[in-house]
Amino acid sequence: MTASAPDMRVDRSTKATRIGLWAMLAVALLLAVAPWYAGAGVINRLTALCVYVLLAAMWNALAGYGGLVSIGQQMFFGLGAYATIRLSEAGVDPFVAVALAGLAVALLSWPVSLVMLRLRGGEFAIGMWVLASVSHLLVNLDPLIQGETGRSLVALNAYDTETRRLMVFWMALLAMLLVLGLLAALLRSRLGLAIQAIRDNEEAAGSLGVDAFRTKQVIFVLSAFGIGLAGAIWLASATSFQPKTYFSVQWTAYMIFMVLVGGIGRFEGAILGACLFFLIETWFAATGVWYLIGLGATAMVFSLYLPKGAWGAIGLRLLPFGYSVTQGNGDRT
């Protein structure tokens, strides 16, 4: 049955991916023990970094792997924060509420996907933005939120500042690792190949037996889950919820920036993009308007000279998502 190809072998991991995985694990460990060697300010910043990585990875999953460009992902960020407030007001411990909020947003995104994924290209992108604005307005109508007055996650006051800082940081780190792990597992599976096939050519994917709609739904819901979780964690770290800061399109703009600069369609690229964004913000945010001009200029330089992003220029594969074929005497073709 397989007589025609007796001497071929498939490898998923290479030397680079083995080193890459170990390096990532080491970085994760280093981050986990950060509270023992870093001050309070640094911990707060690292929490932000984890949230940025989460956001970038999720937008990249949707657009870079799934070909679904959305400019309304702030919807899930805002809803994640809002769900945390609501759950906490209902008596749930605020940290448990953060985790549940991610799940709640994922649950909600399922019916949303049934409608939105029928839209194509630009219609989908704008449709998501419209939906984000509608959810913003609906949240405004909640008497608990009272328009833009907002609400604080008051239940957090039960914990002292230091405990809170550490809890939020570890939750952010855990959420980031969990969601990155989920995405990695997805990309490695047969669904991961299907998602990329749909991105490159939906009709051809369909004629090869790929159920495009279902596959897109999976990536859409995962992306909503990660971003919802990010919104919930951001709230736990900032404590006050004001709808317009959470439902702001600026969040999606940041996601797009991080992914384009880091390298769209590359898992490592989104992470690198988040780190670059984080550094730019850390060093230049205080310069106000010049910071924003700098972000815009950086985006322009990258799209003109490095359209595949920083990681695209590096071109390394640190994660075992691909398939490399070895034939006969071990020659790589």
């Binding site: 190949l193 991105r199 050519n201 051809a204 994917a205 004629s207 398939y323 074929v325």
Partner: peptide, 27 residues
């Protein structure tokens, strides 16, 4: 199974991965 008049390769994937899509899904 149908092939297309204008080839529609999955450009972001390798040749092997392209073929694997068919083997894993319709196959």
């Amino acid at each position: 199974m149908r092939t297309h008049q204008i080839p529609k390769p999955f450009t972001g994937l390798t040749v092997f991965e392209n073929v694997l899509v068919g083997a894993m899904h319709a196959g």
